[in-house]
Design a protein around this nucleic acid. Structure first.
Lengths: 350, 350
DNA sequence: GTGATTTACTTAGACTAGTTAATCATTACT
DNA sequence: AGTAATGATTAACTAGTCTAAGTAAATCAC
């Protein structure tokens, strides 16, 4: 068995509780005793047992991570690596650890969270997604368990601390950008409509169209379950079998956009001359795609970093107010968007 | 405070120890009592406290992850997401959790591991890298703490359970492939020479050249610290300032290869006609690069999965023998390699 | 100079929430 | 009645924290 506080106490000839106080650097212990105890700790190579400490303190210094339901797909998206980067930085700064549980089914996932929470494994939780009617969210709220969410809560926005982008605005700007290029037939390819990101971006898109008096067409809106390349391909098949094909597309994820580009290229549809594409996340391969994708950088690393920080603030201060942190986004213009052909034709006829 | 075992005991009118036995499904408790206790548990919404359990059992059901020293760069490489995917699957199967600590400096990292180990936070550790003279490795070995390594240990290969590819063979095959295309001037761009992956692949490369009686040129070998795109660009600058530029390159990571492709394209050097490139890992963007990269798929997800499984085996069976698990690799041919021009010239002169 | 009070440390022991070896109380069967 | 089998309990143990209490020294009053 490892060295315990009692061994140290014996060697330093003090009570275990004194050793505990020395560890906590309690001012009520004299410097002389502290020194003696520290020497004993050094000599024995003592390291406090975190588990025992957690039990006594009712605090583990561990933060739990809840991945979205279909985590298999989630791992494949660069979003995962980037949030993890930010989370890791934020958590590490304050000497917390990160813990992950995944589940294959919804139920497993839920049970995993209950285990984490009721089992006292973690002090707080970060939800890496936001969707409608989420049981896990309801559970955390009902238990008043500290958590923060990455994304905008579907309900109770003002009661849940969350870190998000202004996805409505981002999508609106993207759409306006396309409209500015003369596009009137703009399609929207989004992820699952149960995710709030998707809904926000969809609304931003619709709002921009409405403001410019462009009629909304139901069949220009496609939703795919995951954010994968295959989803993009599938979406294209649906979109380009409509009567009037769109001349521009908003795709809510680079990975999906990649699939879209692939499919269009196979169909010998030229990007950007026949179809313009604008996507979200600005992952590395937005730059690498042929053509390079115009994409909206949502600063994913920062999203993670701020989420970690705000959760820790909640944990360390009972009365921390509910916060909403909006991470800025930027449109990164590359070569996947061009002036609409109709506009060109019109102009040249003048 | 949450519901404890005592509350359940009181309600079911038994001793706390009986409840504990019911949880463990001990056969010495009658079915009648078990049922009564389970009902009480249900009624109170009882969930055992994992921390208290961990303390009593001296086991946490948590596996620690040690990222390589410069984790900032590591997060950016798709390797990270893929191993995590595999690890997560493997760990989840056996109801373990994953815990991560990172450090900014070497010392912080080391301290983090000591905390994990001596603090009893984790039952075992997975090292996501392998390098020469690693203090963390020595520490784990000296404490006889259960761990497995992803990659080949630099020393004591037969004493450390590890999951790896046959990197020597993979690099050798890659080199032979290039030689088969008529290349005689083949450069090697690798990551840090303190990593065993790099060393193994370098040896495979050198071995192939030697067997074909092609002289080894020191200045055809470049090492970069991280596996990043910038590193690839830097490497190209060095390589193509030599007297005779190579006509083919082995690059030990897709991300670096990407940088190489970028630089060469900027220098108006044609790939594959002027320079052939073969890279490792077969990340998504190997496929997306212009031209698509011929790459060696090392099955990273499987690497993680097997590492998780073998660690858990060690944890659950004291006498589990040391294992070496080799994950197969495949050469994925795309369009970044062509027949050497010298060969073409020779052929046409016939 | 002596007793009272204050101050500065230190400690015993209860507590965190479980597990488990050893023990005890029943009942059942020779 | 004696013994074995079964089922449940007592109490010690995991490694810490922390409150309340204790002690010794220092300060103060007279």
């Amino acid at each position: 068995m490892a060295v315990t506080i009692k061994d140290v106490a014996k060697l330093a000839d003090v009570a275990p509780s004194t050793v505990s106080r020395v560890i906590a650097n309690n001012p009520r212990i004299s410097e002389k005793t502290k020194k003696r105890v520290r020497e004993a700790m050094e000599q024995l190579g003592y390291h406090p047992n975190f588990i025992a400490r957690s039990l006594a303190n009712q605090s583990t210094k561990v933060i739990g991570l809840v991945l979205p339901p279909s985590s298999g797909a989630f791992f494949q998206n660069p979003f995962f690596a980037e949030v993890m980067h930010g989370l890791s930085d934020g958590v590490h700064e304050k000497h917390y650890a990160l813990q992950m549980t995944t589940g294959t089914t919804e139920e497993e996932l839920y049970d995993g969270v209950v285990q984490m929470v009721q089992g006292g494994r973690v002090d707080g939780i970060i939800l890496l997604y936001s969707r409608v009617n989420d049981d896990i969210l309801s559970y955390l709220r009902s238990r008043c368990f500290p958590f923060v969410m990455i994304g905008k809560p579907f309900e109770h926005v003002e009661k849940i601390t969350h870190v998000d982008n202004d996805n409505f605005l981002a999508a609106k700007e993207a759409t306006e950008y396309l409209i500015g290029l003369g596009h009137k037939h703009i399609g929207f390819i989004g992820g699952s409509p149960s995710l709030t990101v998707t809904l926000d971006r969809l609304q931003g898109y619709q709002n921009a169209l409405r403001e410019e008096n462009i009629s909304l067409q139901e069949d220009y809106i496609i939703h795919s379950e995951h954010f994968l390349r295959e989803d993009g391909q599938e979406a294209v098949n649906k979109l380009f079998s409509t009567s009037v094909s769109p001349t521009a597309l908003i795709v809510t994820d680079d990975l999906m956009a990649l699939g879209v580009v692939n499919s269009l290229t196979e169909m010998a549809i030229d990007i950007p001359n026949e179809v313009s594409i604008i996507s979200f996340n600005n992952a590395l391969f937005a730059e690498m795609s042929r053509p390079p994708l115009t994409s909206i950088n949502i600063n994913i690393v920062e999203l993670g970093y701020q989420a970690a920080r705000s959760l820790i603030q909640i944990l360390e201060n009972e009365n921390e107010p509910v916060k909403r942190i909006i991470i800025p986004h930027q449109l990164v213009v590359r070569n996947s968007c061009a002036i609409a052909q109709e506009t060109l034709l019109k102009d040249s006829s003048n």
